[in-house]
Amino acid sequence: MLIRLPDDIAPSEITPQALFEGRRAFIRQAGLGLAAGAALWHGLPTSARAGTLPAAVRSSPYNSTEAHTDWASAISYNNFYEFGTSKDAPLRNAPQMALRPWRVRVEGLVNKPREFDIDDLLKLAALEERVYRLRCVEAWSMVIPWLGYPLASLLKAVEPQGSARYVEFVTHYDPAIMTRRPVLDWPYTEGLRLDEALHPLTLLTFGMYGEVLPHQNGAPVRVVVPWKYGFKSAKSIVTIRLSERQPATAWNKSAPQEYGFYSNVNPQVRHPRWSQASERRIGETRRRPTLMFNGYADEVAGLYLGMDLQKNY
């Protein structure tokens, strides 16, 4: 077994109580009076503000207490290759994507396949705020307060069949507004094992920072899988398909020796492009060590008992 549990959080990493409380208060205000948060949208086209979220936001026991990455960075430093491969291209190009109407099909090995209108999907379960670390395979990281509910709530509603073992996410692809160059095999697809998808940390996400998701962050609906590299957290989802076989995933098809199906954050698995032993938290200058499973080992290490994570990278 190669799973090494991380040390406890260093005292220096814990946000002082007062600062934390103040931040909570700010988020509560922003989250409850969502309209107030609209002030944050200055500089973005009006189309970026499509939709609203239900006001009730539960807080979650999984929240990280670390300082949130500032909003400006979170919306301007994105990987969304359909809208361009530079980090700032999605901010410029993604707002062309129409977010309504938007339908999400849930199909495959389920007893109750269904096509959801995005506004119905939004109301399927109570939204929670989840402050998660996000670790990109490119060795940078952020801390983002997402809004969503566990993907498990949706999956339970459609009743997976006994033979279902994997969940595939197919994302939106519109060549009229997205790149036509075959940088990856479009549409972008991702996948999880069913037990990973049902894990309470796996979040079906509609918003962040008390706001609806900006286009470039995966609007109107994405998944967030915080213990895996960021590219596993598929954006702008249109189909969720349950299957018996492991689905093909976009980056795995592009470079299988670099991006495995699991792609769990793992500082011990070497990567030919980036050292995965450390990362730069956006907003900080010095690298910090990368934690096993991005610091979620207590919650998820059990999913991989008996697996060689050097092979199943």
């Binding site: 070497r270 030919p272 492009r273 050292s275 450390s278 730069r280 200058t285 010095r286 690298r287």
Partner: peptide, 20 residues
């Protein structure tokens, strides 16, 4: 310097592990 803060172990690992 800016990226690796003259961490010689990390620098050596980069040179040896990462073909680019």
């Amino acid at each position: 310097w800016l990226d690796l803060w003259l961490d010689w172990t990390a620098i050596a690992a980069d040179i040896l592990d990462r073909p680019y």
